[in-house]
Design a protein around this nucleic acid. Structure first.
Length: 87
DNA sequence: CGTATGACGTGCA
DNA sequence: GTGCACGCCATAC
């Protein structure tokens, strides 16, 4: 079941993040089967501009929001709306 | 094929 | 707590 590329795997995992839940890039990479590919995870999310992917629920391991193609401000707002746990 | 990039993470001073 | 440097991976050119 490795037909899909790492990017597809990551996007699927991120799309399965429940509301109010946030995962770190490292967590997503670990679920994708590449616990050391957190670098690629960020790149993939940046390339992906699919509104169906709650990429705003992916934050850094240290608790910071990181970045967002629409601006970190939008990301913080979305997380606040979802009552997500932020630092 | 080799180089460069990046929404990262960890270590050390 | 802050700042700097290195390492890691996938993707794009």
């Amino acid at each position: 079941m490795n037909s899909k590329s790492f990017s597809e795997r990551v996007l699927e995992i991120v799309g399965r993040i429940p509301k109010g839940q946030v995962l770190s890039y490292k967590e997503v990479a670990r679920r994708a089967g590449r616990p050391l590919a957190y670098r690629a995870v960020g790149n993939i999310l940046k390339q992906n501009h699919d509104p169906k992917i709650p990429c705003h629920r992916v934050i850094r391991a240290n608790g910071t929001l990181g970045g967002f193609n629409r601006g970190a401000d939008t990301k913080a707002k979305l997380l606040r709306e979802e009552k997500a746990i932020l630092i």
